[in-house]
Nucleic acid binder design. Structure first.
Lengths: 136, 136
DNA sequence: CAGTATCCATTTGGATACTG
DNA sequence: CAGTATCCAAATGGATACTG
């Protein structure tokens, strides 16, 4: 990844007490990256799918309609790295890997689920707005 | 945008009563698209920025650090089309355009804000998980 | 000020083939 | 089964220039 140069990169901001601030509006702030992983196209669906309990790789792949092996593997690795999911690989043949939410992951997945519920419930309004916008 | 052909595209699903179902796990379901616009890199930040009240184009651009004119314009248009924000253009010179959240947009922005708060509050845990993952 | 248009670099993502 | 590796197509996104 190359550095962006549009603006002089801010240092990670600290407040008067010298504590780290995680301002998601600031470019390159760690919270922005974490948030993007979690709200990203596949991260969001994977986390919410895991609210139902442990799942194996191919089960997740079937649940999250349209994800490729590559992207699911990549997504799960990032979520594991950030501490949202736990990966348990049995050294058997054939291999078996179980993915589960960590406590942090569950908190986040619950937030995401609330968001999804809200959007799904309001879809009629969204579709209406779209058709009104389009006839012009 | 070309059609994806990985699987035969499902029809938009209906339940036994013939009502539309908005299952975000299903590829090409309208709720998935709406959700992606709202949780996308810039859509999320634009919506949350507008919780503070009406803002003009360049004010938003300054608030959402790192967004280009092109992407902000594109993002705002999509959010307007989906009914999350309202765009009020004064036909003056110089032009002045005010963006505000619709009631739907406010509900959604509040959900997103809760998510951001949760993630920002847990960033120490995320950074710890990352460093533990990386030393291996 | 609030955009649009164009061009180009980077990134994302999918299909396919392969491995332990 | 659970991936990785490779290759290539498509989407994303930024810099720049321009307009009413």
């Amino acid at each position: 990844m190359t550095a962006r140069t549009r603006r002089p990169a801010r240092p990670v901001p600290t407040d008067e007490l010298g504590q780290l601030l995680f301002d998601v509006f600031a470019q390159d702030c760690p919270s922005r990256h974490a948030l993007e992983n979690v709200t990203g196209r596949w991260g969001l669906l994977a986390l919410v799918a895991l609210r139902d309990g442990t799942a194996r790789f191919n089960a997740l792949r079937r649940r999250v309609d349209g994800v490729s092996e590559k992207m699911l593997a990549q997504t799960l690795r990032t979520l594991e790295r950030d501490g949202f999911i736990h990966r348990a690989a049995q050294p058997t043949i054939p291999p078996r890997v179980d993915y589960t939410l960590t406590p942090l992951g569950r908190e986040t997945a619950d937030q995401l689920f609330a968001l999804i519920q809200q959007i799904e419930g309001r879809m009629p309004a969204v579709l209406l707005a779209q058709s009104q916008y389009d006839e012009r």
